[in-house]
């Protein structure tokens, strides 16, 4: 699909002054500067993420929304160091990560970023507890410390009694809660969740949203990609992408029900 009209207008907006490298403001957990990822070349060149500037303050929950193919997953992968940008910078906790070597990046991903995926990505042959322990062990924890933390986290996500179950013995919602516990085990700077409720029914979705709410209360920085408006509406802030470009950035109030009365259409 060509997007020439927008593309040309977009590209010509670029000014001569090179933007931004430099330290991020204090209190920023995650920062993108001119972040761009293109695929293909020539006729099939496509900007999946197009010069995105984004600051995520520590403790914020941010939802990235937009229709399928707008670049949500690509953006999250760039932010988490799972993919490398074509142009631009990614800063995580005050450190620039986009040009790190593969080893350093792998270590950083393991210790500082917690990933949650739509299809859970648990290891089938490991128990719930072992799945949660694994990243802790990879980050150099002692087996004892890893076990203790995994047990604590499984308790926190309401699955203390499922610790010895294999993923195949758990429901989708339970698997995703294990995946969230795993994402938290190394106390990451940021949790990145890509369509975390995409494979879940509405009851399991509620469980995950409750869990995210607890994480938010605990000050965990969280960025989620979702095409579900009801999920996005639980975040502090919503950024909408279209064709890789942020077209809206809205802050949401968290005062439950402040204006709910306006929804009643009683006239008298």
């Amino acid at each position: 699909m060509t997007r020439d009209g927008r593309r040309l207008r977009g590209r010509s907006r670029r000014t001569g002054t090179p933007r931004g490298s430099g330290a991020q403001p204090a209190g920023t957990a995650l920062r993108a500067v001119g972040l761009t990822r293109s695929y293909g070349r020539g006729e099939s060149l496509l900007w999946a993420v197009d010069r995105v500037d984004l600051d995520v303050p520590a403790g914020q929950t941010l939802a990235v929304t937009g229709p399928s193919g707008c670049g949500k997953s690509t953006l999250l992968q760039l932010l988490g160091g799972l993919d490398r940008p074509t142009e631009g910078e990614v800063w995580l906790g005050g450190r620039r990560i986009d040009h790190l070597g593969e080893r350093a990046l792998a270590g950083l991903r393991c210790r500082s970023v917690g990933f949650v995926f739509q299809s859970f990505h648990l290891m089938d042959e490991l128990t719930a507890a072992e799945n949660v322990e694994l990243p802790a062990l990879l980050a150099g924890s002692s087996p004892r410390a890893a076990r203790r933390r995994a047990a604590g986290l499984l308790d926190r996500v309401g699955l203390a009694d499922r610790a010895r179950h294999l993923p195949s013995e758990l429901s989708g919602g339970q698997r995703q809660r294990v995946a969230i516990a795993r994402a938290l085990v190394n106390e990451p700077l940021v949790v990145l969740a890509d369509e975390p409720t995409g494979n879940l029914d509405s009851a399991a979705t509620r469980d995950i949203l409750h869990l995210f709410d607890e994480l938010r209360a605990a000050g965990q920085t969280l960025v989620m990609a979702t095409h579900d408006e009801r999920v996005a509406a639980t975040a502090d802030r919503v950024v909408s992408l279209r064709d890789g470009v942020p077209v809206d950035d809205t802050r949401l109030a968290d005062d439950a029900g402040a204006g709910l009365g306006a929804l009643l259409s009683w006239e008298d």
């Binding site: 949203l209 408006e229 009801r230 996005a232 509406a233 639980t234 919503v238 809205t250 949401l252 109030a253 968290d254 005062d255 439950a256 029900g257 402040a258 204006g259 709910l260 306006a262 929804l263």
Partner: peptide
């Protein structure tokens, strides 16, 4: 609508 949905979802 998004702001309104946020209020409703929190509730």
């Amino acid at each position: 609508l998004m702001r309104r949905l946020a209020e409703v979802q929190h509730a």
